[in-house]
Simulated scan of single mutants.
Amino acid sequence: MRTDQILTRLERVFARLDREPERPAHLQTPQMSRHRVVLLGSTLAFYLAIVVAVLTTSWLVRLDWQIMFFRPYEQWPQLHAFLDYLVVLGQRGPTAVMVAAWLGWRSWRQHTLRPLITLGVALLLLNVTVGSVKLGLGRLGPHYATEIGSAELFAGGDIFPSGHTANAVVTWGILAYLASTVVTRRVLSVVSAVVSLSVGATTVYLGTHWVSDVLLGWSAGLLILLALPWFEPLIARTEAYVFDLRELLRRRAETGRMPVPVVSALTPLLSAGGKWQLKPVAETVGEPVAAPAAAASAGAAAGHSPAHRSAAHPANRPHLIRSERTPVTPVGSRRPAHPAHPERAGTRGTAARPVAGG
């Protein structure tokens, strides 16, 4: 006869969440290889070349103006409705939510926080690097240009580099970076490249960005993806810290500390020698103290009777006479709480007997 416990769906979910974190053996952390270093250096050189070309108002700025006067949204107006939706794939809010949902599911299946932490680090790097360059150069967009042929720099704008393009490269490229197999990584790399190129071209079509903005956005996003292996030790330490914190909170919730009962200005505590001592409440609140009943039973087991318990006088407190002292009776004492003692016999050693009526 089988006695296996049948778990509900909710119980199975919680049981899976409570499993210890484990990482599949086939998952390998990307390393900063020589090939990746060469790509990083080449992309950085391309990035700096675009910035210099815009700062010097070179041929790249003239190309920006020529395409702006061409007005692609007027040449192919039938594409406008579709591209209005396609450009959403480069907006930070919707894309971050979609990718975070997918990576959260992967983190739950693989029992590791690395996918979510990697996404957070990549988005943080994106905001810092791209945002600082945007605010530092202050370039205006095509719809707000004031002088024909100028680079429109340091005018209070925030479009250089293109945030939509850089965000599309990082957000969709992180899926390829975290892929578990070589084939999946290649397929996702092609998909993310197509999406990021389409988003960049769409911003030029809509007239919201210059061509140089899109080129710099592509290189800015690629720089972040190529530099992510340098941050893998930080990601691993963050994951270990989160799991250690979770274990600490779990142990604290399981053990728990019993609050100290506050009876009066002085709280009686049983010392290691089995004697009652008085401590101020301010010193005992928050300390792990055994229950008075358990302490009394421990003292009885050690051979100490209530007659041998002497209260120690606390330091820095005036000595009070018996009539001025507050009666202190520990919770859980073995002394019965009778309103009055029965009449005792004439001798001290004879037990008290009830008075029988005639």
Score class of each variant (00 low, 15 high):
G41I: 09
S42A: 15
S42H: 06
T43F: 14
L44I: 12
L44Y: 14
L44R: 11
A45P: 10
F46P: 02
F46I: 13
F46R: 07
L48S: 12
L48Q: 07
A49Q: 10
A49F: 13
V52K: 06
V54N: 03
V54E: 04
V54P: 05
L55W: 06
L55I: 00
T56Q: 13
T57Q: 09
R62N: 13
D64N: 15
Q66E: 12
M68V: 13
M68Y: 15
F69R: 12
R71L: 02
R71H: 11
P72N: 08
P72G: 10
Y73V: 10
E74A: 12
E74D: 12
Q75W: 08
Q75D: 01
W76I: 11
P77E: 02
Q78S: 10
Q78T: 00
L79P: 08
L79F: 07
H80T: 05
H80Q: 05
H80F: 00
F82A: 08
F82G: 00
L83I: 04
L83V: 05
D84Q: 14
D84L: 06
D84F: 05
D84R: 14
Y85T: 02
V88I: 13
L89M: 12
L89K: 00
L89A: 13
L89N: 01
L89Q: 03
G90Q: 04
Q91P: 00
R92Y: 03
R92T: 06
G93T: 15
P94D: 07
T95W: 06
T95Y: 06
T95F: 01
A96M: 13
A96I: 11
V97N: 09
M98Y: 06
M98W: 04
M98C: 14
V99P: 01
W102R: 00
L103Y: 05
G104D: 04
W105A: 14
W105T: 10
R106Q: 14
R106P: 03
W108V: 13
R109S: 11
Q110R: 15
Q110T: 10
T112R: 09
L113H: 12
R114L: 10
R114K: 09
R114A: 07
R114H: 09
P115D: 02
P115Y: 07
L116E: 04
G120R: 02
A122T: 02
A122G: 08
A122R: 04
A122E: 04
L123W: 06
L124Y: 05
L124K: 08
